[in-house]
Every structure is written in C-alpha cells, then in structure tokens.
C-alpha cells in the first residue's frame, strides 16, 4: 500500500480517473436508457461499443491517417471516425433490437428469455470479430489485440501546479460531457424525448396518448448505440488498442457505473461512470493496477448496501431537471 503515491499525484490521478470514467459513462447511457424503457439489461451493448472501436480502426486505415498526418487530416480523420463509429454502433444496436428482442416482445416472452437472448447476441458479435471476419478477411480480425493508433498527438495543454493536462484528456472529457448534455436536453426538452419518458413511466398510457412504442424503443437503441460508438472512439484515443472481446470488461464497468448511479437514470450514469473511473485510478495508485477492478466492485457493493437504488436512484422516467 502506498498512499503517498496517491497523495503526491492526486490531481493527475483524478484527471486520469475522469478521463476513464467519462468513457464508462457514455457506454453506461446505453444500458440505462434501454433498461428505462424495457426493464432489460442489454448485455449485447458491450459489443455495440466494441464495433465502434473497430470502425475507428477502419476509418483510420481507409483514410491513411496516422501519427505523421498533418493537422487538417487529423481533424478530418477524427471527425469521420466519430460519425462512422456512432453510425456503426447505432446500426448494430438497432439490428439486435429488430432481430432479437422485438420478436420476443411480440410473444410476451418472460424476462429470463430476454436475458439469455442478450447474452447470446453478445457472444455472436464477439465471435464475428474474433473468428468469422478473420476467416474472410484475415488480420487484423481475430483474437489478438490490435493497435489503433490515433492520429492525435498527445501534448500538454496546460500545467496547473504539477498536474499536466493533455489535449487528449480534454478532448475525451469534453466530448463525453457534451454528448451527455445533448442527450439530457433531448430527453427532457424535446417532444420525442417526452415520448421516451412517457414509455419509461407507463407504456400503456403512453400508447393511449398516441406514442408509438416500437418507434420509441428503436430510438432508444439508436441513441444508446451512437453514444457507445463515440465512447469507442474516445477509448481508442486514450488506449490506442482494441480486441474482439474488448467490450466485455468495458461493458461490465459501464453496467456497474449505471447501477452505481441508479439504473434508468441518465445523470446517474454520468455520476456512476466518473466515480468508478476515479476509484479505479486511485486504487491502482494505492495498491497496484491489479486491484483496480476489485476496488471498483467493492465500492459498488458498498454503495448498493446503503442505497440499493444507486446514488441518484430514480428511473429514466422520473429523472428531471
């Protein structure tokens, strides 16, 4: 145990934690929104994120963007990767809903069936990237980790005391927060967003008010998927890597973040994600990085012991300004 390491580098660790946590938070939104309207934990969401990271790699490869690229190319490649990853992830999320979940809903399947289906979808997607695509296209698909070198060069933007703030950290945290603010505004202020909240609070009454439930559900999968795609980009910028099963651990963390903040609550996802990120980085500093996950889950258990509904605890329907 080394508390000095934590205290000496507190500012830097906190910033690292916020960076990591904002990625968790973005992914957590997908879990929380789908849970809000369907009371379903969409375990395939981790793979929706994974698809985003691979899409980023694809865009960089096609555009030939790497660390040598000039500034205009860096901006162009990053923005293209952002849009492409959001679109790809949203499409996968939507496909899972249409192909797997909707037929079950029409048959009024019990919740356990949904859960098994979700896990099944997750495995199928993992194996597509871990095996099927490799058979047809060879590397980089397969089971080995793949480098996703971001064209953005890390440099220090400003130094406060002995805390160096890099452009990458600022980009990730700002990007994630902006996406979340936009989503929050959409859900709380727009007509369609009101429809989403109505379905979350009372699906039958929402239908009586003319809300098309299937459309709201599709919208929720698309939005959650797009957020996960953006998270995929931010993740590769921070960690320069992806893997066929990269979604698993990020998915579990994001799910934890969603539960920590209060599942079904958009702002809870943000709070839970940031908190989880910070706790992890602190734990790595005090113990070792092997203890990061252990500590994160101990915090989850402790929070749920005292606040079983999570920190902010309301449902998507009730979450308000």
């Amino acid at each position: 145990m080394d508390f000095n390491a934590l205290i000496d580098g507190l500012g830097g660790h906190t910033l690292d934690g916020l960076t990591r946590g904002s990625i968790y938070a973005l992914v957590a939104l997908g879990y929380t929104m789908v849970y809000g309207v369907l009371r379903l934990i969409n375990f395939a969401h981790s793979e929706v994120f994974m698809v985003g990271t691979w899409t980023v790699l694809g865009v960089y490869t096609v555009l030939g963007a790497d660390s040598e690229s000039a500034m205009p190319m860096v901006i162009f490649a990053t923005l293209t990767a952002l849009v492409a990853a959001a679109l790809a992830s949203a499409s996968v999320a939507l496909a899972v809903e249409r192909i797997a979940y909707r037929p079950l809903r029409k048959k009024n399947a019990p919740p356990l069936i949904f859960l098994i289906t979700a896990i099944g979808c997750s495995l199928v997607l993992v194996e597509i990237f871990g095996h099927v695509l490799k058979v047809f296209f060879g590397a980089p698909f397969g089971r080995a980790p793949v480098n996703v070198p971001s064209p953005i060069q890390t440099h220090t933007l400003l130094t406060i005391g002995d805390v160096r703030i890099t452009n990458v950290q600022v980009f990730i945290i700002l990007g994630a927060v902006l996406m979340m603010v936009a989503l929050d505004l959409f859900v709380n202020r727009s007509r369609l967003g009101r429809g989403v909240r109505a379905v979350a609070q009372d699906p039958d009454t929402a239908a009586l008010m003319g809300v098309n439930q299937d459309r709201v559900i599709m919208l929720v999968f698309i939005l959650g998927g797009a957020m996960a795609g953006v998270a995929g980009l931010l993740f590769t910028i921070n960690f320069d890597i992806t893997k066929f099963d990269i979604g698993f651990i990020i998915g579990i963390k994001a799910f934890t973040a969603a539960v920590l903040g209060g599942i079904g609550n958009l702002r809870g996802a943000l709070v839970g994600g940031l908190l989880l990120g910070i706790v992890e980085v602190y734990a790595s500093a005090v113990f070792s990085s092997n203890w990061a996950d252990v500590t994160a889950f101990i915090v989850l258990v402790l929070v749920l012991m005292f606040r079983p509904t999570g920190l902010l605890g309301e449902s998507l329907g009730k979450a308000r300004a």
């Binding site: 007509r191 009101r194 109505a198 929402a206 008010m209 809300v211 979450a319």
Partner: peptide, 21 residues
C-alpha cells in the same frame, strides 16, 4: 385510464403536453 393514469414523473404541463403528443 382508470386510477392514476398520469405520468408520475412529469409536471402538470408536461402531462398535458403528452395529451397533445
């Protein structure tokens, strides 16, 4: 609907807006 058919987490105005959805 019968009983408490309002959206409990929305304001009065938002509920009325839902009627005009």
């Amino acid at each position: 609907p019968e009983g408490r058919g309002v959206f409990p987490g929305m304001t009065v105005t938002e509920n009325l807006d839902m009627g005009a959805y």
